[in-house]
């Protein structure tokens, strides 16, 4: 019961703020709603027994990435509204309808498909450590070491790329 209440409350906030993010006119307000959305997603992670991911979500998304967005919104000082011009070939409404169709399709698959298939129950993976953070760290540094290194290379490349792109003259 408590789980259901928590889930529906969090889901309502997550979806509500997500809708506000894409509908608000003022970009700064939109960024603020995005932060709130991420905080509620972090709360959902706590509910799903993933406290490490929740902390990382707040630290990296809310405290890092969205601050970057806010910086860019403030640096990009627009003289005219960003949505003033519309390409006549753009069909926003068709996009909307198609998106809703995809949503219905996904919902149907989730609601009908899962019921017919017996849920897969694997035995809990035996790890030599206990605790969420320790387990995530253990997997990252053993089975997923190479993807982990690639991800760090990706971040390095992105960092250099961002500096090259954003700097006026090198």
């Amino acid at each position: 019961m408590g789980e259901a209440i928590a889930f529906y409350t969090l889901a309502a906030f997550i979806l509500g703020f997500a809708v506000l993010v894409i509908t608000t006119k003022d970009t700064v307000h939109s960024v603020l709603f995005l932060v709130l959305d991420f905080l509620f997603v972090a709360a959902l992670y706590v509910m799903l027994n993933a406290p490490f991911l929740a902390a990382i979500q707040v630290l990296v998304y809310a405290g890092g990435i969205v601050v970057l967005y806010l910086f860019v919104v403030m640096l990009v000082n627009l003289k005219r509204l960003p949505e003033a011009f519309q390409d006549p070939n753009r069909h926003g409404r068709i996009g909307l309808i198609l998106s809703v169709a995809v949503l219905l399709e996904l919902a149907a698959i989730a609601a009908l498909g899962v019921g017919s298939v017996a849920p897969v129950r694997t035995a809990a993976r035996a790890l030599p450590v206990t605790g969420n953070t320790e387990q995530v760290g253990w997997m990252l540094y053993t089975s997923y070491l190479i993807p982990f290194e690639i991800a760090s290379m990706l971040l390095l490349v992105a960092m250099i790329g961002a500096i090259v792109l954003a700097k006026r003259e090198l």
Binding site: L32, A55, I56, L59, F71, T133
Partner: peptide, 25 residues
């Protein structure tokens, strides 16, 4: 006493930046 106590402190502190940026904006 949570398992990710220090990470919690760092992440909550990182959200405090918003107060300053938004006040200025």
């Amino acid at each position: 006493d949570i398992n990710v106590g220090l990470l919690y402190i760092v992440s909550v502190a990182s959200v405090g930046v918003y107060g300053i940026i938004l006040a200025g904006y």
